[in-house]
Simulated assay, not measured.
Amino acid sequence: MSIEHPIVAVTGSSGAGTTTVMNSFQHIFRREKLNAQIVEGDAFHRYDRLAMRAAMKEAEQTQRQFSHFGPEANLLEELAALFAEYAATGRGRVRKYLHDEAEAAQYGLEPGMFSPWMDLEPPTDLLFYEGLHGGFVGRGIDVAQHADLLVGVVPIINLEWIQKLHRDKTLRGYSQEAVMDTILRRMPDYAHHICPQFSRTHVNFQRVPTVDTSNPFTARDIPSADESFVVIRFTNPKGIDFPYLLTMLHDSFMSRPNVIVVPGGKMGLAMQLIFTPMILQMIDRQRRAA
């Protein structure tokens, strides 16, 4: 953790909605005129798209557990090193995973490949990470220790599967069978390497639908924000102004001393109300130290 070079990390599995959270933070950064270094977790995958397919095929042949959720498929030592270096100096090296043709064209490469490693361009006010492993701890690697604010995004598992099914089938053209195979293959790594991170987070957001999601594999659409609640859990509720949040977030309520439940449509507003003062406190400490 660092006063001079703070790190905010959002962690959650594929299809959990971490990108939506990233957009909320970017609104805060723009409004408060903060220069945030954005780091995408995909950039720390060990293999590009073609190499990952080959590695998965080899793992299947040898009946070895392997997925993007696990350590073997990611450069977690390099991620921890980036966090440590940034916290100490405000510097580090990053790259981008090139998701589509538009991104790849900027580097003269093919989609599914990585850009070259590049040095961060200081000065920045903070580093913002969004990906699978912002709270990872294991195998002598501790990514979580460097995060000044660690946020978990955790829809209940059936909702997470529905979101992944619709995204991968609609946007990526995968068959339902292929997506189901991916979900099942990832489950051991999800249990061992993703779930434990949510016990290390400072704040968790868990969206819970209020419609029937009993069979996620036959769901015709994704439950909307208005068809859900968001359970927000604070590891340390000290300093959280719950009466203010209850007043500002209509129809919200407390379910435990450290948990507030808000209507799904107010998730973005809740993030603004909760994280803006936290970010400003980080920046105030940073400027006082300087």
Rank of each mutant, 00 (worst) to 15 (best):
I240E: 13
A191F: 12
R287A: 01
T247H: 14
D142W: 09
L76P: 05
Q26K: 15
A59S: 01
Q106L: 07
S14I: 12
V154K: 04
S175V: 10
D125Q: 11
P123L: 13
R95N: 06
E4C: 08
Q63H: 02
H99L: 15
G41Q: 01
A270I: 00
I156H: 01
R31G: 13
T62C: 08
S13T: 15
H5C: 01
A59Q: 00
R186T: 13
V153P: 03
R91I: 11
H68W: 10
R91P: 08
L75K: 03
I141A: 09
I183A: 03
L98C: 10
E60H: 15
V39L: 05
H45I: 09
D142S: 06
C195V: 12
E78T: 07
L98A: 07
L249R: 05
T11A: 12
V262L: 14
F234D: 01
P188I: 04
E32K: 06
M52A: 09
L132I: 12
S214L: 01
V261A: 06
G264T: 04
A16P: 05
T276L: 03
F229M: 14
L132W: 03
T124H: 15
T218A: 06
M113D: 10
P277Q: 12
R207F: 10
Q197D: 07
S175M: 01
H133K: 07
K33D: 08
F25G: 10
I183K: 05
T124Q: 06
R95T: 07
F69P: 00
H146R: 09
E227G: 09
N215Q: 04
T170D: 10
P216W: 02
R46N: 08
H133C: 04
G268H: 14
A55V: 05
R31T: 14
L165C: 03
V211G: 02
E160P: 02
D212H: 08
T247R: 11
L82C: 09
P223E: 09
L34C: 02
N236I: 13
F29W: 15
V94T: 11
A102C: 08
L79M: 08
E103C: 04
D119I: 15
V261G: 10
R233D: 14
G152F: 00
P216E: 05
D148P: 11
K96N: 12
Y174K: 12
C195W: 09
L171W: 14
I156M: 14
T62H: 07
A144S: 09
Q61A: 06
T19F: 12
M248H: 10
L79V: 11
N204S: 04
M113Q: 08
F242K: 01
L280D: 13
G41E: 01
I38Q: 15
D221S: 12
A54G: 08
L98K: 13
P122I: 05
G135Q: 00
G265D: 09
F253N: 09
P123M: 15
I240Y: 11
V143T: 11
P6L: 03
V211D: 00
L171F: 14
V137M: 00
D42T: 06
R200I: 05
L34H: 08
S13A: 09
L249E: 02
